[in-house]
């Protein structure tokens, strides 16, 4: 059964087509990667899935409900966890409070909030930094804090927008391990530039180009596809 699906999603900005008739379906428990060259429409598509951008046409359904006209906060409350591409934490609040804000929407009892926070921070190895001010963390640690905030919501679907951007090699490896640990428990939609990460963690890959779905398949299929090679991997973006 698919947890998230899009049917014929399109977005036009003043006549410019950003996303054109995209349909996709992410089954429960899958780690889905969404890749494509810069300007392929990934951010716009994810914006429409999470409710940050209203689609020009098409429909989104999540967890058995049509959520097309739902505002973003309602979709999140229904079980979509979202992490920003450009790090967006609460810089003046402590690491603990950042994650607690994420946890507190579902859990009200103080003790359980702290438990949830500790588990999420432990997963991204930030537990010993919980009383630091978020804005003082290094860039990589702020990325990890973002992921912890996503985890603390115990979402059904976790949307990660370029989570490994700017991470050191060791941190990327830790991220891959984290996704492996999560596999099967929650569904992940991963927007990713780093092809190594995609090849390692994704169960299934959707390739977007010029606002349309160019290709769908397993990581191995993607590697083997001449079409993808020509448009995407050959374009120099793969190295990035």
């Amino acid at each position: 059964m698919s947890l998230l699906s899009a049917k014929g999603l399109s977005k036009h900005f003043n006549g410019l087509v950003a996303v054109e008739d995209v349909s996709l379906s992410v089954p429960e428990g899958q780690v889905r990667a969404l890749i494509g060259p810069n300007g392929a429409g990934k951010t716009t598509l994810v914006g429409m899935l999470s409710g940050r951008i209203a689609p020009s046409s098409g429909a989104v359904s999540f967890d058995g409900q049509d959520v097309t006209v739902w505002p973003a906060h309602k979709r999140i409350a229904a079980g979509m966890g979202y992490t920003f591409q450009i790090t967006s934490v609460f810089p003046n609040l402590s690491v603990l409070e950042n994650v607690a804000l994420a946890a507190r929407r579902k859990v009200s009892e103080n003790r359980r909030v702290i438990e949830t926070v500790n588990v999420a921070l432990d997963r991204v190895s930030l537990l010993d930094r919980r009383s630091e001010v978020a804005g003082d963390l290094s860039y990589g640690h702020q990325r990890l804090l973002e992921i912890a905030m996503g985890l603390a919501q115990s979402p059904k679907l976790l949307i990660l927008d370029e989570p490994t951007q700017g991470l050191a090699d060791g941190e990327v490896a830790a991220f891959n391990t984290l996704i492996d640990e999560l596999r099967g428990n929650i569904t992940v939609l991963l927007i990713e530039h780093n092809m190594d990460v995609v090849m390692q963690v994704a169960d299934f890959v959707t390739v977007l180009d010029a606002g349309k779905v160019l290709f769908e398949g397993t990581p191995d299929d993607v590697k083997a596809s001449a079409e993808v090679q020509a448009v995407y991997l050959g374009g120099g973006d793969a190295a990035a």
């Binding site: 999470s50 999140i76 979202y82 920003f84 609460f90 804000l101 009200s108 919501q153």
Partner: peptide
């Protein structure tokens, strides 16, 4: 309280508070 902490979250980063599922 939880209410007050959400208000502070809105002050600090409204977009993030919304994307944590709060009806800002």
């Amino acid at each position: 309280s939880r209410f007050g902490k959400v208000l502070i979250a809105i002050r600090e980063n409204e977009d993030r508070a919304r994307m944590l599922g709060y009806d800002v």
